[in-house]
Design a protein around this nucleic acid. Structure first.
Lengths: 242, 242
DNA sequence: AAGTGGTCTAGACCACACA
DNA sequence: GTGTGGTCTAGACCACTTG
């Protein structure tokens, strides 16, 4: 019974990986178009001389990846590819910059502890409470690279009360100290107003990219941040979702 | 043997889903910090009165999601969360707009079949060959929403030679006709020049968002496109990677 | 009614890393 | 060596859906 496995076990790849890869290749190359019915589990069992669990595992992975869809009594079908799903990384700025051999600095421009105002309550989705409002400028090779404008929900992150944020930037501090479970991002392009242009040392009206992030520790929001970058210095790269 | 399953089978959720969810909750809430060793498969088997395969499946899913790491002989450990990975969707414009009950239109501004020039060769990473250059404007509710500037590698997509692209926009046509295996995106903010401003009916210098996409059918590039949106009308939403 | 996929079991052998 | 995870088997029952 293990004989078949041993025979097929070339190059250290597991059998379910091989089955998955071979089906994936058929889909990706277009040989199996969207809507094509792929072989039944029973047929794949015979083809690969393996048990149904092994086939099932391979197909289950393909379902998670969105490549196939499975319908009881009908079979498994190639899905119309979800062209549009892409994954990107928003780097933790300081370590990213240092890793590239560039210099990183930041200035804390504002640190205000206050009772939440209307805008704060909206951003953090709270009825009341205290927030910490931080603004700082990030520099890469001594040039302004990002303006950070952040709210921290002090009910959820009381440790932030006593953090100075004068040596460690807020994003790094939060990453290290605050557990989180979910985040939502919005990316927008807009023209800099005079004050932002002054801070970022760009001309007024220069196109900027804003990345807003709401972070949850379910079910509540811990922090809201706007990271605003000069358009000419910043871009986001994203790959098709692997 | 099936008795235990029947007893635990509440609310139609499978057991491996329940195991995965409960471990996930412990990680997400911070009760199990990064580095924490989660129970051995053997312990989880006892706790849930199930077989090792069921536990293994739950843990395997968590590995794929990047929440835990498994080391032989040592156990399974909570990973440091990858803060920065986020996933977004770039909708197929027409169907997206129509689904929202808005009107969609587009104008084909340019359709040129030519020998690849230097820029074309660079964008498509080819040494020579013919390309199709398309430009069109997409309208949502009769207002310009995007300017599309696209190159198609005719060696790889010969069917595009005979497609008119006067009724179906290039992105929809390609989506339906051309298999692809990989894509890379770049998102940039920039100020509109006079000509672009005229096309998009925005003021010159208005911030725009450009999404560039290179699409592969491995190992070659099938198409390169710039989608340029008026900043005030467009944003990208992204969720933490599920 | 029949055949598909969804899920699970109770074993098993193996590689690997650590003691 | 020892115990972990990685993988696989040869069954099983069930729900669902479709012919």
């Amino acid at each position: 019974m293990k004989a078949e496995q041993a025979i097929d076990d070339r190059s250290g790849i597991s059998l379910h990986d091989r089955i998955r890869d071979e089906i994936e290749a058929n889909v990706m190359s277009g040989r199996w178009s969207p809507g094509h019915r792929i072989p039944y589990e029973h047929e794949l069992m015979k083809h690969y001389s393996c048990s149904r669990m092994t086939v099932n595992r391979a197909l289950g992975t393909l379902v998670e990846r969105g490549l196939i869809e499975r319908r009881k009594r009908a079979g498994s079908f190639v899905m119309t590819p979800k062209f549009h799903q892409a994954v990107f990384e928003l780097p933790e700025l300081r370590s990213q910059v240092v890793a590239q051999g560039k210099t990183y600095d930041f200035d804390l421009l504002r640190r205000e502890l206050r009772r939440a105002n209307a805008a704060d309550r909206s951003h953090l989705n709270i009825a009341d409470g205290e927030v910490l409002h931080l603004q700082c400028l990030h520099y890469v090779d001594a040039k302004p690279y990002a303006f950070e404008d952040r709210l921290i929900n002090l009910e959820l992150v009381p440790e932030a009360r006593t953090a100075a944020f004068d040596r460690e930037p807020p994003n790094s501090w939060l990453f290290a100290h605050v557990p989180w479970s979910d985040a939502r991002h919005q990316i927008t392009a807009f023209n800099a107003d005079a004050e932002l242009a002054r801070k970022l040392a760009i001309r007024p009206d220069c196109a900027c990219m804003m990345v807003e992030r709401w972070t949850w520790r379910l079910p509540e929001r811990t922090t809201y941040v706007q990271m605003i970058h000069p358009g000419p210095l910043f871009s986001i790269e994203a790959a098709f979702r692997p």
